Structures are given as C-alpha cells and as structure tokens.
Amino acid sequence: MERARKNHDVSLENLGFIVREMVAGLNDSARSITKRSAGLRLPNLQSAVYDIDAPLVRRPAPLERYRREWIDFIGGNKESLDKRAIEFLCWVPEIAIDVRFLACIKSSGIELNRRSLTGLVRSCHWMWESMPPENPSVHIITGFLSRYGGTDQLLQKWRLHFDALLTEYAPRIMADKFLGSGKTIPSFIDEWRIEPQSAFFRKVIKMATATCRNRLDQSRNDLLVLLFRDLLPWPGWNPSDLKKEMGAIILYAPMSNRSRQTIQRFILHFEGLGDPRLSANRTKWLEVPQKAKDRLIRWLNEENPCVFSEHVYQQGKGWVWKQRVSIWDPLSFDNTDQQ
C-alpha cells in the first residue's frame, strides 16, 4: 500500500513538470510571434487588404476568350484548339458549322460529349436558313452524331432519327412527326428538345401549317384544332410569314363551311389582324394579299353587313363611341364537336 502511494506521488510530480514545460513553450512561441511583423504573421490577410484599392484586372469571359482563340486559330497564330474551347464553341452557331472548326475537331481526336453534340445540332438548326441543302458541315456533324456511343436518351433518339434533324428534308419529316403525335407544340418541343426560336423549327411550323391548310376541305376537327389553337397562334412566327400564310388560308379552295366560319372567328379575335373593315386594323393587313382581304370582307358582309357603334367607357377618355362589327365570341375548343 505504501509502495503504491509513492508511485502515485511520483506520477503527480511528473505531471507537474510536464505542465510547466508546456507553459514555458507557449510563452516562447508568443514572444517569437510578436517579434515578427504583421505581414509575416498574416500574409493572406495583408494581401487581401492591399488588393482592396488595387485596379481591377478584367479577365475576359470564357466565351469571349475562346472566340479570340478561334480568331487566332483561323488566322494561323494558333495550331489547334483545346478541348475546353471546342466544348464552348460548339454552341456558337456561326463557328460551330464552319468546316474549319469541324475539321479541327476531327484532327484533334477529341471524343465529343453529350453537351458538345447537342450544341452542334442546335447550331445547325439556328443557321438552317443560311445553309445550302447539301452543306458539308451538316454531313460532318451527322457523322459525329452517328458515332455517339453514350447512354444519353435524347442523343440516342437523335442518332436514330437523324433524318428528321440533319437532312435536306428534315423540316418536312419533323412536321409530319408533329402532326401525327397528337401533342401540343410545347409538349413536342419538350420531347425532341428542339430550340423553338431556331430557323429550323420555324420551318417545321410553316410546313405543318401548310399541311393543315391543304386539308381545310375535309372538315376534320383535329386539324382545325391543331391549326387554330396551336399553329397559327404560335408566338415564334415571323409576322410577314404569318400574314402570308393567313392570306393563303383565306384563299384556299375548296373549303368546308365549318372551316370558313372558324377562319372568320379566328381572324376577328386575333390581335395581329382583326376585322379588315375597321380603319384601326388597316396597317395590320398591309402584307396580306389583297385578294384574300377582299374575300374575307365579302364573307363578313354576308354574315354581318352592318358596322355599328356602341357607347363604351374607356379609362382616361370617358364615354366614347367605338365601332363594333362582330358579335361572335372568340374561338373555343372546349366543345369543338358542337361548333
């Protein structure tokens, strides 16, 4: 028992010695630190403080930087483009369809990933109107797409249906797919991931509209719904193209009576045209063929020959006289079978 107590006392003495040594070491460290300048003790903080008032160094955005690399490349000042630059430039339409850019990709041996291939296809669609039917760039991009071996479902679908995306007759094929899908435009775009504002998709919409127009004599409910609910109100139309198409629709013959009534109701309540008999709509009809305008006016006069005015209250103007022509309600496709 006495021996155990002595061992315990020795342990306490050792512990006290260790504590004293630690305190002495900490004091030495503190004295050493205080002897050094603040810049040596906190170099990162000092650098940050100095940079506050330093002039801002402008670094170009990645796309701007890669555009410069492209200019250097085609100017002969750069031998090749790195992988990162290629991935960015695949999304710049005027560069992505350049044969020199595509040749650079081929010679580099880089395997294009999902994002790069998507950018190349969309770039083709953006530049569709400015490319000749047998553009060599399209053939090269089609080759890249055909060699895709990844698992992305969209690219697999594009690879299997490249004829609807990257051939001379692709807009026609895609338009037929849309007409046969039974889907709305947003749903169809979501399925195929097509850029809705591209020249390619505008061509698809124009062809689908022309197909529906050429079947106006059939009185098919599904075609009327598709034409007047989805295709003609589509916001991506070029205004001139839309008005020319409206002229072609009005002049189409033969036409069922139901189609004629649907056309009249659509035009009267369509903000881009309206009743051609009203002076307020005169400028809206300037690009519509005169024959189409005259024919529509004859239809309207047969249905409602009297242009009358009604007394209405307008904010800021008070009670005013406003011309009113049609008493028809706007088109509704909730109960199309009864119309």
Rank of each mutant, 00 (worst) to 15 (best):
G318V: 06
V99D: 05
M174T: 14
P133F: 04
K6W: 07
Q323Y: 10
L296A: 05
E245P: 01
E94G: 00
E302H: 13
C124W: 03
M1S: 13
T209N: 04
P186E: 01
R159C: 09
H8S: 13
Q323I: 03
P171Q: 07
P305M: 05
G318E: 09
L224W: 06
M246F: 08
K78F: 00
G76C: 06
L56Q: 12
G119M: 11
D82I: 11
R277L: 07
E191T: 04
A96K: 02
R215I: 01
L216C: 04
A210D: 14
P186M: 04
D190M: 04
T167P: 01
S29W: 08
Y169G: 00
R115H: 13
S80L: 01
H269S: 11
G318M: 05
E87H: 08
L45E: 11
I189Y: 00
Y169L: 08
L268W: 01
D53W: 05
A4E: 14
Y66R: 12
D82S: 11
P171F: 02
G16D: 13
E191H: 07
I95S: 03
F333M: 06
S256H: 14
A170G: 06
M174C: 15
A280R: 15
I33C: 09
S240A: 14
V325K: 03
K157P: 00
N135Q: 07
R282Y: 08
S279V: 15
I249D: 02
R229F: 03
E21R: 13
D230W: 08
S116Y: 06
C212M: 14
G25F: 07
L166F: 02
P132Y: 09
D176N: 09
L296E: 06
L232F: 09
I74D: 00
K106V: 13
D176I: 00
P196C: 04
C124L: 13
K83W: 02
G143L: 03
A210Q: 15
D82P: 05
N113A: 05
G39F: 11
D82W: 13
N257W: 02
Q261K: 14
R65E: 12
R59N: 10
L296C: 06
G75M: 02
W234V: 07
I185Q: 01
L223D: 15
G149N: 10
E245Y: 00
L232T: 09
K291E: 15
S116E: 12
S332R: 07
A48W: 06
D82F: 13
Q197F: 07
I250C: 01
P133N: 10
H139M: 12
L278F: 09
D275A: 04
L166T: 02
M131D: 01
A280P: 01
Q197N: 12
P60Y: 08
I71K: 11
F270K: 10
L145H: 05
L268V: 08
E191A: 02
Q46N: 09
P235W: 07
I297C: 08
H311P: 00
A170I: 05
P239D: 10
G236I: 10
V325P: 00
C306D: 14
